[in-house]
Design a protein around this nucleic acid. Structure first.
Length: 839
RNA sequence: GCGGGCGUGGCGGAAUGGUAGACGCCGGGGACUUAAAAUCCCCUGAUCCUAUAGAUCGUGUGGGUUCGAGUCCCACCGCCCGCACCA
């Protein structure tokens, strides 16, 4: 083997072509091997791969390649989440067609992914904007419609009157459109919805079974679904009306001292109609911010309507307020307020001088105990509550609900935070909703043999508004039922629909239907799903729902799409900037010379300010382009960096010094491979043991996605092998290192494998075998402590008896010095670990 | 405010309740070289010290459990993430 340096600029491409030619990573669904489905969240083709993609796909790739080495048939596909607004924005800004822009980006990004040598089954690649894909999506949507899971209703949207488009909440900045700057209007539109709420209970229960999901994500999903149980009942009002309220604490009903409605509640609107003070107050309520932090600091405000609400048990009239802390879209938009046992009600009552009765106390004796400046929401027994006195909270809840139901004035209900999923988008670049509006027949699904309903290509983005709506002919069609003139739906589907079933299409892609259930069953559920935490709620919840909905209509067996989920951290970098008057100008790392004590701009040699280490973002310019670093260091060094140092769930700080270290290690391994010596003989027992221990440990680490630990162990074995004399054991260590490193640095491994006359491609090789007998040390180091403090270490045969260890420990001079003649009260011996002498 | 997570050298981080700081980066010293690059070797938590040895301290702070705590428990401080003033 030559002593030349490993040259990634030659080797990377060579092996990437070799894998392609051998179709190494095409998944065979008819294989007898155990199946592994490894999936990373597919990218939006925004233009170029960014470093976050590189980290995400490297992790998945290591797992996929490792599983293959373990004898699994691996499905590791890649595709493109290709519909979305950036394509339309590009169309408006640059005058390009969204389809052309998107497919160009896909080509660029695919080339970039190829440069990283990912073990992907490109034969299954598709983009969600391919008519074939969205056509099948349309047929699934119609299936759900036929099953009653799709409906239309009027719903309010953010309308930009200049761009003539609907805006997402995050596109509304200070009440103005992000692009046009125009004042955003609320508009009611007839929109399409999916009945995700039908599955609320099932989705919530399913979370319990997701043991291989991060606890954090499970909690976020539970809170998002937001189940609560309580009592809904109506107050009779002094003005003759009734007011339905919902409470989760019916037990505290005797502690209610006022009733409150949201500012946009119909009762409040009625009052405002002939009371301008009330109208002013309602205006005031609308001004406040809506973030949790703003709401938390906002003062509780109320307006006394003068109306009374009759308490269902006492008959007493409680004052009715309009209050800024009551939300219209939760429960009934009206509450019974119990200041003693709800902090918000407490603050409100304190401000407006309303009574704060105690109805729950630690014991009956404490019924008159005053409150200590805040509400008490905890457990206890009911007091001052007539027939409930003495009951615990749970019993009292049940009793009040029972009496309300018997009396016919209320009922126990479950309230969910989860809303139905609005999937209408008034945009061009999405899946056309496959329905036809007919004056006589109403809303009619497009017949399946007419799918896909393709997007028209001749559209312009020069005028504002939805191009589908103003296209001269596209929407004009005839009714599939009666044949009379009719119009196509011009809304398209939310892009989250595209990503709710792509993993099924990866598993099976017949041309005549979305997927084949039997074929899908061979792969699903996804064994390991990897992606960003930003998808913890919406994407993952929608995909869970869509999968259930398909199971509900009989198209699938599986209910949970992702057996195991991993959410990876971000790649971060420090920022470089200079104050330019009031503005701060940022510089890219490539424009800066960084030394250990500062940073200067390459162009003028003057210092720049080094800012905090934060997520890479275009606005702060603290980005590195994956293509640049692949060119400079090679794919393997980049991949190795992505896996080193930081645990994968935490943020990874990018550093020039770090990637250089990785580049050095690539060469170091290469030199070590060159020392593989066919003629060497003899055994090196220590190195052999170390090798087998490493093989076992690295396997465990990769299974646990603890790549940083696997990397550290490979460094250790590398050092040990470098120091060892030539022997068969050393050859085995080198060969094993190559195999273990191959999922992480596949190009280097192939190059080394070929030079060592390895059989075939290392991509098809097996994970090295572990000799269990060699995992066990025959000598161990024993720590000797006196009173828990380390005084000495000694070497003893593995499995020495407690008695022997005690004798050895007491024989230590250092230990004797420490004991200094004191009485030994006790000796703790942990076999093969330590001896602790207690005096 | 609520919920969750995290606090370990100059930095990223290791550590089934059992030798804290593996491994990498930075830094220092040396070898090789005309020189540089590359490579290799050694040192690198703090303090003390009679210095190839030894001692003390040390995992955000204060308590506790234990023969023994970075790890378990309680309280507090700080940082990060998520959120919904959800009745």
């Amino acid at each position: 083997m030559s002593n030349e340096r490993f040259d990634p600029s030659v080797a990377d491409g060579r092996w990437q072509r070799a894998w392609d030619d051998a179709r190494c990573f095409d998944a065979d669904s008819n294989s007898d091997k155990p199946k592994s489905y490894v999936l990373e969240m597919f990218p939006y083709p925004s233009g170029r791969i960014h470093i976050g993609h590189v980290r995400n796909y490297t992790m998945g790739d290591v797992l996929a390649r490792y599983r293959k080495m373990q004898g699994h048939e691996v499905l590791h596909p890649m595709g493109w989440d290709a519909f979305g607004m950036p394509a339309e924005n590009a169309a408006m800004e640059k005058g390009v067609h969204p389809a052309g822009w998107t497919y160009d980006n896909i080509e660029t990004m695919k080339g970039q992914l190829k440069q990283l040598g990912f073990a992907l089954d490109w034969s299954r690649e598709f983009a969600t904007c391919d008519p074939e894909y969205y056509g099948h999506e349309q047929s699934l949507f119609i299936e759900l419609f036929n099953a009653g899971l799709v409906y239309r209703k009027e719903s309010e949207v953010n309308w930009d009157p200049v761009d003539m488009t609907v805006l997402a909440n995050e596109q509304v900045i200070d009440g103005k459109g992000w692009r046009s700057g125009a004042e955003v209007e609320k508009r009611k539109l007839n929109q399409w919805f999916l009945k995700i709420t039908d599955f609320a209970e099932d989705l919530l229960e399913g979370v319990q079974g997701l043991e291989d999901w991060p606890q954090k994500v499970r909690l976020m999903q539970e809170n998002w679904i937001g189940k609560s149980q309580g009592l809904e009942f109506a107050f009779d009002l002094s003005n003759g009306g009734t007011l339905p309220v919902y409470t989760t604490r019916p037990d505290t009903i005797f502690g209610a001292s006022f009733v409150a409605v949201a500012a946009d509640h119909p009762v409040a609107q009625d009052v405002a109609a002939n009371n301008c003070e009330a109208a002013k107050f309602i205006e005031l309520c609308k001004k406040g911010g809506t973030t949790a932090a703003e709401l938390e600091t906002a003062e509780k405000l109320g307006f006394d309507t003068g109306i009374g609400a009759r308490h269902p048990f006492t008959g007493e009239y409680l004052p009715l307020y309009i209050a800024n802390f009551v939300l219209m879209d939760y429960g009934t938009g009206a509450i019974m307020a119990v200041p003693g046992h709800d902090q918000r009600d407490f603050e409100f009552a304190t401000k407006y001088g309303l009574p704060i009765p105690r109805v729950v106390a630690a014991s009956v004796e404490e019924a008159a105990k005053p409150f200590d400046g805040e509400a008490e929401a905890g457990e206890g027994v009911l007091v001052n509550s007539d027939f409930l006195d003495g009951m615990d909270v749970e019993a009292a809840k049940a009793e009040v609900i029972a009496r309300a139901e018997n009396g016919g004035w209320g009922k126990g209900t479950t309230v969910w935070r989860l809303r139905d999923w609005g999937v209408s988008r008034q945009r061009y670049w999405g899946t056309p909703i496959p329905f036809i509006h007919c004056e006589t027949c109403g809303v009619v699904p497009v017949p399946k043999d007419q799918l896909p309903v393709k997007l028209p290509e001749d559209v312009s983005f020069e005028q504002p508004g939805n191009p589908l709506l103003r296209h001269p002919s596209w929407k004009e069609t005839s009714c599939p039922k009666c044949g009379s003139a009719a119009q196509r739906e011009t809304d398209t589907l939310d892009t989250f629909v595209n990503s709710s079933w792509y993993f099924l299409r990866f598993a099976s892609q017949p041309s005549d239907k979305p997927f084949d259930a039997d074929e899908v069953a061979k792969w699903m559920p996804v064994g390991q799903y990897i992606g960003g935490i930003e998808h913890a709620i919406l994407h993952l919840l929608y995909a869970r729902f869509w999968t259930r909905a398909l199971a509900h209509v009989g198209l699938l067996e599986v209910k949970e799409p992702f057996a195991s989920l991993f959410t990876q951290g971000m790649v971060t970098h420090e920022t470089y900037s200079r104050k330019d008057g009031a503005r701060e100008a940022f510089f890219m790392p490539s424009e800066v010379d960084r030394t250990s004590d500062g940073a200067t701009l390459k162009s003028d040699g003057q210092p720049v300010e080094i800012g905090k280490v934060i997520k890479m973002s275009k606005s702060k310019k603290n980005v590195v382009d994956p293509e640049d670093i692949i060119r400079d260091y090679g794919a393997d060094a980049v991949r190795w960096f992505m896996l080193s140092d930081s645990p994968p769930e935490r943020d990874l700080p990018w550093s020039e010094a770090g990637i250089e270290g990785c580049g050095r290690y690539v060469q170091r391994l290469w030199r070590l491979f060159g020392q593989y010596d066919e003629s060497a003989s003899g055994e090196d027992k220590d190195l052999a043991r170390k090798t087998h221990q490493t093989i076992a440990a690295v396997a465990d680490d990769i299974e646990a996605l603890a790549f940083n630990k696997a990397v550290a162990r490979l460094y250790e074995l590398t050092s040990a092998a470098e120091k060892a004399q030539p022997s068969e054991s050393r050859n085995h260590a080198i060969r094993s290192l190559l195999l273990m490193a191959s999922p992480m640095m596949p190009h280097l491994a192939e190059e080394g494998w070929a030079a060592m006359d390895g059989e075939g491609l290392v991509a098809n090789a097996a994970w090295p075998e572990v000799d269990e007998a060699l995992l066990v040390e025959d000598e161990v180091t024993i720590a000797v402590q006196h009173m828990g403090k380390l005084r000495d270490t000694l070497t003893a045969p593995k499995g020495s008896s407690k008695e022997d260890l005690e004798v050895l420990a007491l024989a230590s001079e250092k230990v004797q010095r420490s004991i200094d003649g004191a009485d030994i009260r006790k000796v703790i011996v942990v076999p093969d670990r330590l001896v602790n002498i207690v005096t």
